[in-house]
Amino acid sequence: MIMENQTLAKLGNINEPYLGKTLKELDALSFADKLMTITLPYPAKGNEAAISQAIRQIIGEDSHSQIAFEYQIRPSARVSAEQPGLANIKNIIAVSSAKGGVGKSTVTANLALALQAEGAKVGVLDADLYGPSQAKMFGIDDLRPEINGDKIKPIKAHGIEIATIANHITREYTPLIWRGAQLDSALKTLLFNTEWPELDYLVIDMPPGTGDVQLTISQQIPVSGAVVVSTPQEIALLDAKKGLKMFHQVDVPVLGVVENMNMFICPKCGHEEHIFGHDGAQLMSLQYMVNFLGSLPLDKRIQEETDSGKPTVMAEPESKIALNFREIARKVASALYIQDSQAPVVPQTEEQLKAQSSNQKTIQWNI
């Protein structure tokens, strides 16, 4: 493809909105015959139309040039390929609320599906061991994983690779009466002994609170970044702030805050009501200088679709709610790239890796 220097300069000056850089600065443009390829470092299929339109305005709508997009998602400097069990995982995202009942697990499931819809390979680790819900939400609660020796094969649903203790429990109402050491062992088994395929992102559904499991995830698992979920309600925000501060204290970057249940929209008359207040999470993000990733409504369809094993992003991919989740996914992925580019982490030493992997005994699933 032959283009004038002036045209090339205009193409290079097109801004990529989520990264705040031009296509030239990202070295995103390449040409071959009549094919123009845009290569971005994070998944952004939902933004392809806008970038394509900007390109067409420069090269002309009648141009025979084809435009293609590729996504080259690089591994986080926090995740070492030398870490046992994590060789195929590029980035680990923890989704936390520090409080139950705010829709964290629902956000986790839909965020994973949204990242996949944007062009990434995604897995989910259900770390909420006392209240695992990802199996139900992905419709795999009746399945059992294949176990070979001390290796567990994740269960695939809707294209997402999933590891959850729920698939090892004989009955869904069986309680886990475990102390901290058993929880720690079970969590490490689920993460390090699962045979994860190549993943761009592993999304961890964190348990509520700031106890043993949260500290294990924050301190012993190389989390690339965290997403904090809250409702606008003040009591929920108090706990969300604790979770946010916990990540700061253990040096885990916070990628942003999601405000769930921001507004109830009456399905009959369309009246909008802020049942739990509004914009509290957005104000919290300003207070702590972290990204505000977006708001999600209190909508009966979200509950019905997750309960049926087909979360909204999969059940209604063109709905406003699904598109909101995809917008949040792009913000999360781009924020992860930006923070990793600005403050690269020195890879862990062999001694540190050995220390992390020590005592990772495989727990027996006799429950």
Rank of each mutant, 00 (worst) to 15 (best):
I2H: 15
T174Q: 14
S96I: 07
P311I: 04
Q342M: 14
L286R: 15
G243N: 10
N359R: 14
G294P: 03
D200C: 09
D205M: 11
L8D: 04
P207D: 11
P84M: 09
L191T: 08
Q339S: 11
L35S: 10
V290N: 01
W196Q: 14
D141Y: 14
A335P: 01
Y42L: 08
Q360F: 12
E4D: 15
T362D: 02
F292H: 05
Y337S: 04
K99H: 05
N47A: 15
R171V: 10
I328V: 11
Q66T: 05
V258M: 01
R74I: 05
A315L: 06
I302W: 02
P197L: 13
L176H: 03
S133M: 08
L11F: 00
P344H: 09
G149Q: 12
A240G: 04
A226S: 15
T362M: 12
V213P: 00
K241H: 05
A9Q: 09
H271Q: 12
M3G: 00
Q219H: 12
Q303A: 05
L191F: 06
F325S: 00
Y71F: 14
S52R: 14
L255I: 11
G85Y: 11
G149P: 13
Q72G: 00
Q66F: 04
E172C: 08
Q233E: 08
A77Q: 11
G209L: 04
V79A: 07
L353D: 02
T164G: 06
E4W: 08
H271K: 13
Q214W: 02
I14R: 01
A163M: 15
T231K: 01
E304H: 11
A181E: 15
V254P: 00
D239C: 09
F264T: 02
I14Y: 02
T216H: 07
I2C: 08
